[in-house]
């Protein structure tokens, strides 16, 4: 009886002030609960503090340039004029390249791991794909710089420029480093996350859905494409969004292969910068409130964008999980 009472008290989350009144009857319990709650609120506090501190440090730049910061292409530390457009564009362009390559690739891997792989292969193959996410960004950047970039310069960009040079995307000198290299590195970095979320939501599809389609005389692929993937679609979309979130914010590997240009251009071979790489490259050399403020404002923009993207992605994941558990057949 008493234990049941204590348990009930501890499990009732609201009305914390009532427990003050009962002090010290179950003091240990609520001290502990309060302690854990404080730790949990630490996370919330960090997120809020991040927004505020970044805004405060970016303030000189925010007030000086206003909204034009996002639309200006100037970046001139000598004259103290800063605009973020090329960096924003670089982030969006490289992430777009990454999504174009990574989404179909991840879907293939996720379908293979969840639906096609024989038992003995499933666990090791999943492990290897997850390992891809464990390679330190800076190591991937090193590999990208010394192995991938030379290969992109010649033959990839040579060939594309020579044969498809009439398309604006493939014009300009083949630097190797640039939008294309950055996008491809981001592909590698976002693929494991997209794959993992998509694979889990495919695995969560009830077998009755597969059997229903198979019993109609569908082939294996028709079963996957017409019954399984539609059922798992919100989880798959969530995976893509989370993968995008990762691509937008990845720093070191991109910094090492993107070539430190600053331009808005359709030419994929051109050197560029993302918001993250711009910060990483210049922050330690920056001096003066405005210059530092401009870089911190870049970080603030990046923070805001990834925040929105991640919140949408996570809510979709939660929604999918609770939805499949209530819809489970």
């Amino acid at each position: 009886m008493r234990q049941a009472l204590i348990k009930e008290q501890a499990q009732t989350p609201g009305k914390w002030w009532r427990r003050w009144l009962r002090w010290p009857a179950s003091s240990g319990d609520w001290v502990f609960q309060t302690l854990t709650l404080l730790a949990a609120l630490c996370l919330v506090g960090l997120l809020v503090a991040m927004a505020l501190y970044l805004l405060a440090e970016a303030w000189p730049s925010v007030t000086l340039f206003g909204p034009a910061f996002l639309t200006s292409t100037a970046w001139d530390p000598v004259r103290g004029v800063f605009g973020a457009l090329p960096a924003v564009y670089g982030t969006l362009a490289t992430s777009a390249i990454a999504m174009i390559v990574a989404v179909p690739l991840s879907m293939g891997v996720a379908i293979f791991l969840a639906e096609l792989a024989p038992d003995w292969l499933r666990a090791p193959a999943s492990f290897l794909v997850e390992m891809l996410a464990a390679i330190p960004s800076v190591v991937l950047g090193l590999w990208g710089l010394f192995v991938m970039v030379p290969l992109i310069r010649d033959p990839v960009e040579q060939w594309l420029g020579g044969n498809l040079g009439f398309i604006p995307l493939f014009q300009g000198p083949p630097f190797g480093v640039g939008f294309l290299a950055g996008g491809l590195i981001l592909t590698v970095m976002s693929l494991p996350l997209i794959t993992a979320v998509a694979r889990d939501s495919i695995l969560a599809v009830p077998n009755s859905q597969r059997e229903a389609m198979l019993a109609l005389g569908a082939t294996h692929w028709e079963t996957i494409s017409r019954a399984v993937l539609p059922y798992a679609r919100s989880g798959i979309i969530a995976g893509v969004i989370l993968g995008l979130g990762r691509a937008l914010g990845e720093t070191m590997a991109v910094t090492m292969v993107i070539g430190n240009g600053y331009q808005v251009t359709l030419q994929l071979f051109a050197p560029a910068n993302t918001m993250a790489s711009k910060i990483a490259t210049e922050f330690n050399e920056a001096s003066g409130d405005v210059y530092i403020g401009a870089l911190v404002e870049l970080a603030l923009v990046l923070f805001a964008v990834t925040l929105v993207v991640n919140i949408i992605g996570r809510l979709l994941v939660y929604w999918t999980v609770s939805d499949t558990s209530t819809r489970g057949q």
């Binding site: 389609m213 019993a215 057949q329």
Partner: peptide, 10 residues
């Protein structure tokens, strides 16, 4: 099948 299993997205 034993339990109705319509395709929920269709």
């Amino acid at each position: 099948f034993q339990r109705p299993n319509p395709f929920p997205t269709m």
